[in-house]
Nucleic acid binder design. Structure first.
Lengths: 344, 344
DNA sequence: CTTCCTTGTGAAACCGGTTACATTCTTTGC
DNA sequence: GCAAAGAATGTAACCGGTTTCACAAGGAAG
């Protein structure tokens, strides 16, 4: 503290150690290219003055930032938390940082975010948006920035994609209900217009039921937002009448649990008089009574795989266009064969 | 596409527009300092070649990155999702980006993360860690980087802190149970050793019960991890015996809901024979039967306020050392006076 | 004792922007 | 009609690192 410090970062270190800037830089990034003696002296100085390297400058020079950009549809839906966590786990192993943006379920905004991330110099991008603007593909190709799409296989994606088999998962669940002998089946779904994944499930279930020869019941196809009061109201409307379904297939666990709660309040035993299925296997699927039959979807693994792929692309390795991750049906206590005499 | 592009970013724009680099730069950052004519020409060129600015270079020159660092205790606990969301909301308004790190509930790692974030050039930092290493305060002071701590007021924090009154909230809840006339009260808690906030709640509840003259029942103080099977097992052990409490105060909603489920399985009516309280008011508090009496804690607001404070500090404005956000007790169906004859 | 090759180090260019200062060209005032 | 003020633009230094290249010293080979 005797005089004013140059405060030029590495320049100061170099000066204090009595070497040139270049040597100081090498001592830190390629320790074996400098003499033992000098290296130790520089390390000592770094400790002394508590030197903090400037990754911005480093990034400018090296043209890489050690940062990966992650775009999520929304930060408020806890469903994506495991995916974010998966990305973070892999990033941690590689000393990478994560900058995260929310596209607010909007394609146009997604493209903005991608431009923004590229402007900020991220080395690669993972996006969990289910579908993308075509311009997005042009942009990343032109900018030559690795981008991988995680979550949903939709036609026309021209970037590496990792996902699970949404159609198979919900088909399997529908077949489970059908094979139990149910004929009076309702669908309780999240809003399809904001979420292609949900729209797809809804569509697949309906098609499957029709294929099984069940007459369509439009009043048994409910779309409802994730707000608790709304879900419970809708669930009640579905199961309160005497003319009620014997099974309800939900596109998400929240809707299923809401249904369970309302059934309980109405004194309708599950699964004896009503079977209910969920999807996603979030924590609440086990925190209800009975526990939920649901599909465990690989959200954590989605994040991990997508992140690995992105880093692979960055390293110049070839990556597959599609990576399919397995789902698994978890049959718990909320489904059973319909009571005789009610099912037909 | 006639020849090779210089590909020097703004230099290329300048060249194509027939102006100097400085003018091009000004046209974008201070449009009113260049002539109408030139500005339009430059904007046109930018559009033509789809110019993407380099924020890294900009950051190096300006010494600010338009990025804020956020440190969370863990990304796997969805409890912090609203806080992250709150930060993001405010950041969006200011055109800031967020780089997020997980400290894995570890102080030492938190300090590493802070150093890492500073090295990456973030303009300010928000951390949701409940307590910090003393070295952290020295570091941020020395580096002169705005840091605000959100979540918990613990003694000795020498940085601006935003939080809620954890002690008051859990005291209020304990008093609610006491005032209903309960004397046989158990505590079902998350793990205190990993989470100071939980440890504090546990301590406060015990002190309050003792102050009310209740004899201590060590077997009615349970600490249990957040894993569903574990929580349910512990809850069952607590309420299965005939010698059971008439009320269970939980330090988190998950524990409370687990208890609710087990009570239901045992045919133990809530709230008639057992009162249960939660804390945090996460979504499941409304997705159970009966709905949970709990404390609504301002997690979203925590993120918003902390982020605003951080940006204020960055702008050189004075900020309060402590910002207290209100909590609110939400009395729902899971609590009631004990049945006569059982309570005493 | 040269000559050639290593090895360690320094000087300077560079990454892609921002900006203080200098310069040129208009205005405006007297 | 000329000086002074003002507006638009250009020149060059700078942010804090990395890296190419040149150079000097030391060791091995001839």
């Amino acid at each position: 503290m005797t005089g004013r410090r140059p405060k030029n970062g590495l320049r100061e270190v170099a000066q204090l150690a009595g070497v040139s800037l270049a040597t100081a830089s090498r001592a830190l990034s390629q320790p074996d290219r400098v003499s033992e003696n000098v290296r130790k002296r520089i390390e000592e100085v770094c400790r002394q003055i508590d030197y903090v390297p400037n990754h911005t400058a480093r990034g400018l020079s090296l043209k890489r930032s050690q940062m990966l950009g992650l775009i999520v549809p929304t930060t408020s839906n806890p469903l994506f938390a495991p995916t974010i966590d998966g990305v973070r786990m892999v990033l941690d192993e590689h000393g990478y940082n994560m900058v995260i943006d929310s596209a607010e379920r909007d394609h146009v905004r997604e493209l903005e975010m991608v431009r923004n991330l590229v402007a900020h110099g991220v080395d690669a991008i993972v996006t969990i948006m289910p579908t993308h603007l075509p311009e997005l593909f042009d942009f990343v190709r032109k900018m030559n920035v690795p981008l991988v799409s995680a979550h949903h296989f939709s036609p026309g994606k021209s970037v590496p994609t990792v996902g699970y088999d949404n159609v198979a998962a919900i088909t399997e669940m529908t077949d489970h209900i059908l094979s139990l002998g149910h004929h009076r089946i309702a669908i309780f779904s999240g809003p399809g217009h904001t979420t292609p994944v949900i729209a797809e499930r809804l569509e697949v279930i309906q098609a499957r039921l029709a294929a099984a020869g069940l007459p369509p019941r439009p009043d048994w196809v409910i779309e409802c937002d994730y707000e608790v009061a709304q879900m419970r109201r809708a669930a009640r409307a579905l199961i309160a009448p005497d003319d009620r379904p014997t099974a309800i297939i939900c596109t998400g666990d929240q809707h299923a649990v809401s249904t369970l709660v309302e059934a309980q309040l109405l004194g309708l035993p599950v699964p004896e008089k009503l079977s209910v299925t969920g999807c996603n296997d979030v924590a609440i699927a086990e925190l209800c009574n009975p526990q939920l039959t649901t599909q465990r979807l690989p959200y954590l693994e989605l994040g991990q795989a997508a992140c690995r792929l992105a880093l692979d692309m960055l390293a110049g390795r070839d990556v597959p266009e599609r990576t399919l991750l397995p789902h698994r049906m978890i049959i718990r206590g909320s489904t059973a064969a319909p009571t005789k005499g009610l099912s037909s």
